[in-house]
């Protein structure tokens, strides 16, 4: 079974590399928005394509381990957890690319309204993502529980953004394009927080064997 343990270590390394890339992508997408940086947006897109490839590799690796070793107990929970985290990270990768695309559209179309604080929201969301991955690295269910608790706050910020932006669209219909793009970015960030929450929940399952989703 030493071989199996080595395979699990390899899987762990692969998913952590992917996690690090995805985290970078979210940060860079937000920087691209902040600085109207097209080069950075292009990097985000390239990295997102790599993430897609990584996702397929990791899924194949998980399926191979399930078929060859028929793991049980903690090993089974680990591989199933990695399969799910893999999917969440891939979605976060997609969302970071969507943010970068919207950011470039805003660059061409004008400024985001000052009363919508996307940077503050992004800082909370990236922190949640980083902590969910940290909880995974160190197998810390307590930290994962903190991440879960943070999701409601991000949801509230997003709802607040929607009402501000709806008012702004009514007041300045000529800026509707920009405002809708901003609304989409807020929505993408809110979805990233959801995926970070999923990762945290998967970690709790891996560590404790309890499915905490919807509880």
């Amino acid at each position: 079974m030493i071989r199996f343990q080595l395979e699990l270590s390899r899987l762990r390394r692969l998913i952590l590399e992917m996690g690090a890339d995805v985290e970078d992508n979210v940060r860079d997408a937000m920087k691209a928005l902040e600085r109207h940086d097209e080069n950075l947006a292009a990097i985000v897109e390239r990295r997102e394509n790599e993430t897609d490839e990584r996702e397929v590799d990791i899924e194949e690796e998980c399926l191979k381990l399930l078929a060859l070793y028929q793991p049980v107990a903690a090993d089974l929970r680990y591989i199933v957890g990695v399969l799910k985290i893999n999917e969440d990270l891939e979605r976060v990768g997609d969302l970071s690319q969507h943010i970068a695309e919207r950011a470039m559209a805003i660059t061409r179309g004008g400024e985001a309204p000052g009363d919508v604080d996307l940077a503050r929201m992004a800082s909370k969301v990236t922190n949640m993502l980083a902590r969910s991955l940290e909880a995974f690295v160190d197998l810390k269910p307590e930290m994962a529980r903190e991440v879960r608790a943070g999701d409601a706050e991000v949801d509230a910020i997003h709802r607040q953004h929607i009402s501000i932006l709806l008012e702004a669209i009514k007041a300045r219909p000529e800026s509707a394009d920009v405002l809708l793009n901003v609304m989409h970015i807020s929505r993408h960030l809110e979805r990233i927080a959801d995926h970070a929450t999923n990762i945290a929940e998967d970690l709790i399952y891996m560590a404790e064997g309890e499915i905490v989703r919807h509880k």
Binding site: M1, F4, P71, V72, A73, A74, D75, L76, R77, G209
Partner: peptide, 17 residues
């Protein structure tokens, strides 16, 4: 027992440790 054994000895045995 096969997804979440109570005892660590069971876990060690069924996971081949």
């Amino acid at each position: 027992l096969f997804t979440k054994p109570r005892e660590s000895q069971t876990e060690d045995y069924i996971t081949g440790r």
